[in-house]
Amino acid sequence: MTDMTQPVTPRKTRIRWSALADHAVLILGSLFMLIPLLVVLQTTTTTDIDTIKHGPQLVLGDQFGENLNKAMFKASGFSGENTGTSMLMNSMILGLGFALGKIVIGMMAAYALVYFRLRFATLAFWLIFTTLLLPLEVRILPSYEIAQKMGLLNTYTGLIVPLIASATATFFFRQYFRSVPEELVEAARIDGAGPIKFFVDILVPLSQTMIAAMFIIMFVFGWNQYLWPTMITTEESMYTLVRGIKQITQDLEGTNIPEYGRANMLALIAILPPVAVVIFFQSWFVKGLTESDK
């Protein structure tokens, strides 16, 4: 009996040791990701003077409400219009508008490309998918000039529409539609369903999960846009949280007492909605992200 159990025991402990090492690495990695957020969080709960005097502490302070109040309702610019509330609203409009626009336009175009006999299908395909090759950053100045000529500066249209000019969602939905069984469209046609009915009653409900996954990715992408909003919005009432972050950092350089509480709170507000969406809809989000490359 003892002979049989003995070789098992050391092996068991060795496995436990390696599991322990795995956990240690994962905990260190998690801390690497998390500590910066905790530092920001801590400074939102103390007074600015405390932060300047002592730096971030290990305990939370009691100024969270006060800092939140300052962040949401106090403006720092010249016009007094870039309060946290107004920036939060603009960020929401950008995130939701971008995701919605991208999905609607992408699904329409993908449907046309996959389900119709079209004379210029190949040309349309290449025209659309070339846009995947060049990010907005490399054509930023001419894009700005064009938006300016069209009178789109400081408008939501100018903020959202040029960002939609790339075919990521179209590409994604095209891939997905192609994987939908062909019998479905045949059956629908035999039953007398037209193309619009097929799209609205069959294809869209069928794509629900994909739409949700795309929506999450696009919302986060839109919310986090920085360069384009920086160029296109010059009026403070049009700032998004992410675009406002530069002004917030510049305020910290000013001659007055730097408002760390307010600044960190605004950063926290800019982080929370997209992070919450990603965490709550984790499985959809991961599915959407990892399948978009295929």
Partner: peptide
């Protein structure tokens, strides 16, 4: 814990770097 930072905007990450 390891993936939430995906949703943090680059300039906000830069801001956290400043802090």
């Amino acid at each position: 814990l390891l993936m939430w930072v995906y949703a943090v905007a680059p300039p906000v990450a830069g801001f956290i770097g400043l802090i």
